[in-house]
Computed example of a mutant assay.
Amino acid sequence: MIASVRGPVQHVGLDSVIVEVGGVGLLVHTTPGTAADLRRGSQATLATSLVVREESLTLYGFADADERALFEQVQTVSGVGPRLALAMLAVHPPDVLRGAISGGDLATLTKVPGIGKKGAERIVLELRDKVVAGEASPGTPARAAGREPWRSQVGEALVGLGWSAKQADDAVEAVAGQAGDGGDVSGLLRAALRELGR
């Protein structure tokens, strides 16, 4: 298993990055918040999880090992694959997800596109006794500030997570006052996700 990658960032997409490792560019799928923290040409260190399928090898990357651990844990639930597990981490940080699972908070879980009431109940039923609320890793790195154009980055990330363009635009407008000089893309994305969850 590839547990981590480190190297210069060659490309940053909405929900993926390419990191050069030993002369090879590895495509790493991430949450929009993690991708927004990385810059082309900068050094990146990501905790990773390799998902092996008959027709593909797909690498998923995370800001820290805590996110990776939860990503792998939620996939033990029937019907939860890597894309849905990544969407869960895109909408909620690990400590919020663990709290929702251990507390049976279905409303929080169903804010994730692709998780309905039955899916949320199944996740709670199968993982309630396996997760500990507030189990965030110490020393989690602080998110770096994003740069313009934050509006399109946040809007495209929301559409990529399953909301309509109209919902994404409304959420972007709702958090525009928090942008300040240039805007922290990952912070604004989290604020927009909270706005959509109301």
Rank of each mutant, 00 (worst) to 15 (best):
A36G: 02
I101R: 08
F71Y: 05
V74F: 03
F71K: 00
A90T: 13
L70N: 12
P82G: 03
P93R: 02
G99W: 02
A85Y: 04
L27I: 12
G25V: 00
Q73L: 15
G104I: 01
G99V: 04
A47M: 08
A107N: 03
V91K: 00
V28E: 01
L86S: 13
Y60F: 14
P82F: 02
V28G: 01
A65T: 14
G41A: 09
E54P: 15
D64K: 04
A35E: 05
I101C: 07
P32A: 01
A85V: 01
L89V: 09
A100I: 03
D95F: 14
S78R: 11
G41D: 04
R98G: 14
H92T: 06
G33M: 00
V74R: 10
T58M: 06
L97N: 07
L89W: 09
A100F: 07
T76I: 09
T31V: 09
R68N: 12
L97S: 03
H29F: 10
E67W: 05
F62P: 04
G103F: 15
A69P: 03
T76M: 06
L50M: 14
F62T: 03
L38M: 04
I101N: 11
I101G: 12
P32R: 04
A87K: 15
V77W: 08
T30P: 14
T76E: 07
G41I: 07
D64C: 15
P32S: 04
H92Q: 10
Q43L: 14
D66M: 01
R39D: 00
H92S: 11
R83K: 15
P93Q: 03
G41K: 04
L27C: 07
A63C: 10
D105V: 11
A36I: 01
A44G: 09
D37A: 10
G104T: 11
E54T: 06
T48N: 06
